[in-house]
Design a protein around this nucleic acid. Structure first.
Lengths: 202, 202
DNA sequence: CCAGTCTTTTACCGAGCGGTAAACTTTTAC
DNA sequence: GTAAAAGTTTACCGCTCGGTAAAAGACTGG
């Protein structure tokens, strides 16, 4: 009986809970999230959550890591190309999401952004997010540095430039999510091209 | 007895409640805010809130408008100067706050930002924020347009440029508040200068 | 000074929340 | 095959929350 579709292990259940938490969070928002809401999003009863996680706070902490892992795991950029192409690819991926999950991307980002804001009131969560942000920013900075070394970009402060790009991306996503500006990512993509990346060449 | 310090009108009480709400929100965050917390931040009992406001939701809606009014009321820019100076002044004010309330500025921004994020789950609140955001963005766009007309800036899409600047400001504030990056406003100020405004001239 | 109105306090409540205990079911180990 | 371990469900609970009713106080105009 090694039929994998029938064998439900503990890890599987935790994954089920994570996905149920994601759906519940999408529907109700962080502030109004009840354990009951999560239970209603899965076939198991809400009490199993207490078997696998040590209360609501522990659940949210685990979910936070789950969301970030998913985010970082979904980033896939062809590193064989030149710095400018890679930079473009990374920006596109941050603004529009990976192609293979176009439809869930903004649902995931909405939850991600809400968690991000709430993290300001919780030292542990804040640290997790800070580390994550640093990795995203670092990957952008790296590309800029490569571009400068290879002479494709003019010599600028790569840290500052990378930070600026990361911030702009973040703001555009936040604006789309919080204010419903659906064209924010596209408009921002153009603005980055015209006003920021343009000054990297010449 | 027209001694104004003794006469407590209904408006005064509502102001007291608003400020108590602000303090409670600063301490506990939106998600964990209880009516009790607000009561503890003022000399009156928490039940008076129900006399002046129709429940928690109505209180939060009123508070949202209160915060935005305060924000917009605090913006004061000398319009006699040239576009570039006015643009600089507006950016500084958004990033560092009005000089006369340097110490409460970031407390206020923290609450503002939290409300902003949670507005995504409430159509009414979202609209209030959207209108507000539009006014801030509009004021930046206007200055850019003036600069172009007066020949101080090169001819760019003012809407797009204004939006970009507004987004960058927003992101820097969010990063300082959510991740605790205290140098974010200053670093962002430099990045705007070096990479964005620079491309407005020449 | 007093009746009437506005405002605040005191005392209280029902609903709904997160969490637990114990029964029950399934899987594992030998 | 069976006993122990792991996982899940059922039933339940205590507590805290936002909100209310009525008493108490503080201002009005006459």
């Amino acid at each position: 009986m090694s039929d994998s579709s029938e064998t439900v292990s503990a890890k599987d259940t935790e994954e089920v809970i994570m996905e149920a938490t994601f759906r519940a969070l999408s529907k109700h928002g962080y502030t109004d999230l009840r354990m009951r809401d999560i239970g209603e999003e899965m076939d198991l009863t809400r009490q199993v959550i207490h078997y696998h996680f040590d209360g609501k706070y522990d659940l949210m902490s685990s979910f936070l890591e789950y969301v970030i892992e998913q985010y970082e795991g979904s980033v896939q950029v062809d590193e064989e190309t030149d710095p400018r192409s890679e930079l473009d690819a990374r920006i596109d991926q941050c603004l529009f999401g990976p192609e293979f999950e176009e439809f869930t991307h903004w649902d995931r980002m909405k939850v991600y952004h809400e968690l991000y804001t709430y993290a300001q009131n919780d030292g542990e969560h804040r640290e997790i997010f800070d580390d994550h942000y640093e990795r995203i920013r670092g990957s952008i900075v790296e590309v800029v540095e490569d571009g400068i070394e290879q002479g494709q970009f003019r010599s600028v402060d790569a840290e500052r430039m990378g930070q600026l790009i990361t911030d702009v991306i973040h703001a555009a996503r936040g604006r789309r999510i919080s204010l419903g500006h659906e064209d924010a990512p596209e408009e921002t993509r153009r603005a980055i091209d015209e006003f920021i990346l343009d000054s990297l060449h010449s």
